[in-house]
């Protein structure tokens, strides 16, 4: 059932278009830096100043640029559409009559959404690596701590970073899935989910509510940069993953409670 669900989702033109955009951003970034020269050291988004030094940093700069907007946007679109999209098309009633089972259907939706989170982050890094290796040197990598690690080690770390980024989106995905069970209008669910990212981002920037910051799902989103230190700093990464797990538990349960009781009118 999960496999069938994944095949249905990934066969959709809209989903492929989202992935194409995610591939295009780091590639565009790499060409821009290649043609115009990167910003001077310490300027521009993190890693962008190093993008031309090494292909690994092209990939990481791709992650940094897509993390605040493009990746969450694509997750919000997917999550918002997950249940509300089926409801608006009317296919939800036929899945339930089949009977797919309400909880089982939700689980399949959640699993495919998690898969999409991972794929989204992975395609950014893969595209960035590919573009970076073609356009820029690919020798040993100078870490943020100033030490040097072998190139393949750097590739491994950027792939690891993409896994962390993918998992960092789980909380957002769970919230989007919950919102998606509340309505029959997918666009509304998507908009609300994007709104959550924006609100969390704003709150994260307001020092007066600093007590809230450790609980905001966006708070540790950039923790993956600690993986490019030597040795790797796992502290914030673990905090991030634990927080995401909490969000998944709370909103996953809420989505389940709503899903198994809702009246399906659409």
């Amino acid at each position: 059932m999960w496999l069938v669900e994944a095949r249905t989702v990934f066969s959709r033109a809209r989903v492929r278009a989202l992935l194409v955009v995610l591939v295009a951003v780091p590639v565009f970034l790499a060409f821009a830096v290649y043609l115009a020269g990167g910003p001077h050291n310490g300027q521009g988004p993190t890693f962008l100043d190093r993008a031309s030094h090494n292909g690994v940093f092209t990939a990481l700069a791709g992650l940094v640029v897509t993390m605040p907007f493009f990746i969450p946007l694509s997750i919000a679109v997917m999550a918002g559409d997950a249940v509300a999209g089926e409801a608006s098309m009317g296919t939800l009633r036929y899945l339930l009559i089949r009977p797919a089972g309400r909880a089982r259907l939700l689980a399949a939706k959640g699993a495919v959404l998690a898969l999409f989170c991972m794929v989204a982050a992975l395609v950014v890094v893969m595209a960035g690596l590919l573009a970076g290796v073609v356009l820029f040197p690919h020798g040993p990598v100078v870490t943020l701590s100033g030490t040097t690690i072998p190139f393949l080690d750097g590739v491994g770390r950027s792939l690891l970073a993409s896994l962390v980024v993918g998992a960092s989106m789980f909380g957002l995905g769970a919230m989007g899935l919950f919102v998606s069970t509340l309505t029959d209008v997918p666009i509304a669910a998507m908009a609300v989910t994007i709104g959550l990212v924006i609100v969390s981002g704003i709150l994260d920037g307001v020092s007066q509510v600093a007590f809230l910051h450790p609980w905001l799902f966006t708070n540790y989103w950039t923790s993956f940069t600690d993986l490019v230190r030597d040795p790797m700093h796992w502290g914030l990464v673990w905090k991030d993953l634990l927080l995401q797990l909490g969000y998944v538990a709370v909103f996953g349960a809420a989505a389940w409670a709503r899903m198994v009781t809702r009246d399906v009118q659409a």
Binding site: M1, V4, T8, R12, A13, M89, T91, L95, A100
Partner: peptide
């Protein structure tokens, strides 16, 4: 119930395959 509902981006056969495999 209340008219048919399928996935517009899939063929008729693919739609039937999906529904057939989404349950016990």
């Amino acid at each position: 119930v209340e008219g048919p509902a399928f996935y517009p981006w899939m063929t008729g056969r693919e739609n039937l395959e999906r529904f057939d495999s989404m349950g016990p």
